[in-house]
């Protein structure tokens, strides 16, 4: 890719990434949440790969990494959900943390935590799918 594309995407991907983080962390207060935030975050990574990624070995390694991160995020989500079976009211998916004041950033108990893990999972999953297609295309040539 040309230098213009590289420079612009280097700036833009940071902005896009932090917008994704914003959506993700404010998911319990405003529109957005885990899935939307995760998709935007994945967009930042996709932009970087489109601008810089032409080394297939490097892409393969990245894909391995993102697969592991994706699985770990789901496992953490599951762990937090299943922890409800031992904590608090001993019910699966129970919101066992302090609910707090509505409208504050730290409130709504476990929901922001779930949002964060869903966001990481969605970002990693979408990025993995994208990388899988890219690697497929690179192998063709």
């Amino acid at each position: 890719m040309t230098n213009i594309v590289k420079t612009i995407s280097r700036f833009m991907s940071g902005v896009v990434f932090f917008f994704g983080v914003y959506l993700l962390t404010n998911g319990h207060l405003s529109p957005g949440g885990g899935f939307a935030g995760g998709t935007v975050m994945a967009g930042a990574f996709v932009l970087m790969v489109l601008a810089f990624g032409d080394n297939i070995m490097h892409l393969r390694k990245t894909k391995e990494g993102s697969t592991i991160i994706e699985n770990l995020a789901i496992l953490m989500f599951l762990l937090f959900a299943a922890a409800g079976m031992w904590l608090g009211a001993k019910v699966f998916f129970h919101n066992y943390l302090d609910i707090g004041v509505a409208g504050k950033l730290v409130s709504a108990g476990t929901i922001p935590l779930f949002n964060v893990f869903v966001g990481i999972e969605v970002a990693a999953a979408l990025f993995t799918v994208f990388l899988a297609f890219v690697i497929f295309k690179e192998e063709e040539q």
């Binding site: 697969t67 592991i68 699985n71 770990l72 789901i74 496992l75 599951l78 959900a81 299943a82 079976m85 699966f92």
Partner: peptide, 16 residues
Amino acid sequence: PLFVVLPLAGAFIIPV
């Protein structure tokens, strides 16, 4: 819920 939780946990522990 273990009927769902355990196979799901197994599914994601295996690749890691």
